[in-house]
Amino acid sequence: MIVYVLAILLFLIGLYGIVVKRNLIKIVISLMIMEYAINLFFALIGYREGGAAPIHTEELGDNMVLFVDPLPQALVLTAIVIGLGTTALLVSFAVRIYEKYDTFDVRKIRKLRG
């Protein structure tokens, strides 16, 4: 149970970073922390005490109980790829914003009024 709580705590740290931090790059990093907390949580869900890697081999045969759950692992892989895409996009936008405004500080990037 404690590991789940720690993963959620990591998620909340990321959320805190997004809300509080003023630097574009730090916001991106917070978003990544949040994403990886979820990936960790996903991998923990699939974990089974003493389970083997979910690969079909001669010794283990078809006995599914000996495997860890493979589905969350597949989902984590997909989520990592999506995270890669969003992070690359965010970082490239941060670089472009730096070129336009000469700063990473969100307080100075205010051409749009809310």
Binding site: F93, I97, K111, L112
Partner: peptide, 12 residues
């Protein structure tokens, strides 16, 4: 500049 800023906000 404005478009990048809006999109960054949207992305976050």
């Amino acid at each position: 500049a404005e478009e990048l800023e809006a999109s960054f906000k949207y992305q976050v």
